[in-house]
Write a protein that binds this DNA or RNA. Structure first.
Lengths: 335, 335
DNA sequence: CTGTTAGCGCGTTCAT
DNA sequence: ATGAACGCGCTAACAG
């Protein structure tokens, strides 16, 4: 790091300004008060020499980096992308940088990756939707300060920022119920994913709360292809009376709609479809896709707020879950 | 960084193993030859104490970080996301981490951001599609080792990895020409974007090479909305005889198709439409969108290869441009 | 208010 | 083959 050619150090500045390194350091950090004349001389020397403090040396002395790491299973996921973006910008505003640690879906390497990242950075943002609770529990204890994203962790000593998927699903079901739907299908996501489990909880809650409804669960996935490939099963369910489908997310819903169109199933005429996440494309689908909007960027910013508190030695703040907002569009209609 | 509680240092290991710090260091780095007995003792002490070398101290001594930074104008862009992903994985395989520096579209801050990033990292991957050539030229010289992504820089002393947009556009025009189209419209991207300029060059080349064709340029943008909003202009062009539209990228094309459908314009019946980038959604559009595929992940990996060479003191390798591959789908048809 | 001194944790001579 | 000592660049504690 630093410059190619021999770096100019604080000693050079001190020499040129005719003062001690300590004085230079003081001017640099604005600690204590320094004689205006010295400040002048030092600043002159600094600009003359083009001096920049060594990050490494500072890190060694302070035991911190002003860098945090975001550990993520797949950078391709729009949710994580949005969070990373919001996090990166919020942290930057406080002078912190963000390192990305993509574990490439290797659940077994998440711990090692997180530990390694923690060793290089001051704190961790952990996205590990598939890690078993116990392992996560232990890991979190080892890498604190840390904020966990988008998954519950009962009794954990760690701030959690996420989305209230259960609530979102319930709100969505309510919406569809209001449109007259009674028989639903839920196209589920990755089996071990925590957010999928939360959605399923929402499904169960909805069924319990609204006696007149049924919700079939059909295996789906998280990507466009998964929705596309599930279409036949969905169509079969439709023939058996299902009138509305809730997909794990928008990508799945969009893939599903594509295949249904090929199969000649009209949306929403023959079947209402809703997604989750409200990705930009949802508005532009044909028909525009009803979805539950999730504030990705804001989640990232909120994660930073929590982490900053922790870094500053503050308390573990309460879990915060964002309630998804219904974006009712034309893919769902009165039955 | 490092652990919350007082870190265990190399001195602790040395003490417990009953040897000198130097020996521990040797064992750690596998330099020179060490007495097998000592190796044993040291390794035992290391695992017993759970010792991990301090990244900061190493950085200070070596003058490097094993970290590179990717400076990017907007993390929302699918192209940069894909490159980041490929880069991150390739670099990780060599023990390097990637820091993201999102400049949030602030062209004026790109230089400062890049310099700051370079100060913290061993090298830079620079995505600055809108920075004027001269400024980029100077910047590149100051932050080397650096690889520039996705834009030309004539005579620059820097490796460049990118996409041959001009060639891609030409191939696309050829394809459409083969389908019988003669009058085209190009929905252009961000005015100052280098890749847009390259595409325009492709447009000009195509017109020069194929005497019988015309290509109108219509102002567009880079996002779904931009395509949506340009639809009226596109439709007007259609009424004047344009039969095929090439959009700056797939997002624009998809937004355009959505609005055209609302306007009652049939694709490809009334108008053929093609995009660029081949985002996942392209295949799932209605009709499936013809596009030019770009190997995002591979570009990221290639960037790392170039950068690794540079870091190792190697030469500035030649520019490499990927030729987009035509993915002909149903949104374009014989006229 | 300022300079001197002593580490931060590690790699690396230089003797032994 | 091994250990002692120094230095990487900087900040914090202590005198003056």
């Amino acid at each position: 790091m630093s410059d190619r050619n021999r770096a100019v150090t604080i000693a050079d500045v001190a020499a040129r300004a005719g003062v001690s390194q300590a004085s230079v350091s003081r001017v640099l950090n604005g600690k204590q008060s320094v004689d205006p004349a010295i400040v002048q001389a030092v600043q002159a020397a600094i600009t003359a020499l083009g001096y920049t403090p060594s990050v490494a040396a500072r890190s060694l002395v302070h035991g911190r980096n002003d860098t945090i790491a975001m550990v993520v299973p797949d950078l391709e996921n729009p949710l994580f992308q949005g969070i990373l973006r919001g996090l990166s910008r919020a942290a930057a505003a406080d002078g912190y940088r963000v390192l990305v640690a993509d574990t490439a879906e290797q659940v077994d390497e998440e711990e090692a990756t997180a530990l390694e990242a923690r060793h290089r950075c001051d704190a961790i943002v952990l996205c590990a939707p598939r890690m078993p609770e116990e392992r996560l529990q232990r890991l979190v204890a080892r890498i604190a300060p840390v904020v966990v994203v988008n998954r519950p962790l009962p009794g954990a000593q760690v701030p959690i920022v996420g989305v209230d998927y259960a609530r979102g699903i319930r709100d969505l079901v309510d919406h569809l119920h209001g449109l007259g739907h009674r028989r639903f299908a839920f196209l589920s996501g990755p089996e071990l994913s925590a957010s999928n489990a939360e959605r399923l909880r929402g499904v169960a809650d909805a069924v319990a709360a609204e006696p007149g409804i049924t919700i079939d669960v059909i295996e789906g996935g998280s990507r466009l292809d998964d929705g596309y490939e599930a279409a036949e099963y969905v169509d079969a369910a439709r023939r058996e009376g299902v009138t509305a489908v809730i997909a794990f997310n928008d990508l799945v819903a969009l893939g599903l709609m594509t295949r249904l169109r090929e199969l000649g199933v009209e949306v929403p005429g023959d079947l209402s479809i809703a997604g989750f996440d409200d990705v930009p494309m949802a508005r532009f689908a044909t028909p525009p896709l009803t979805s539950m909007s999730v504030p990705r960027g804001e989640i990232g910013a909120q994660v930073w707020t929590r982490l900053r508190t922790l870094i500053a030695g503050g308390p573990i703040e309460h879990t915060v879950l964002y309630r998804p907002r219904l974006e009712a569009r034309e893919s769902t209609s009165r039955v």
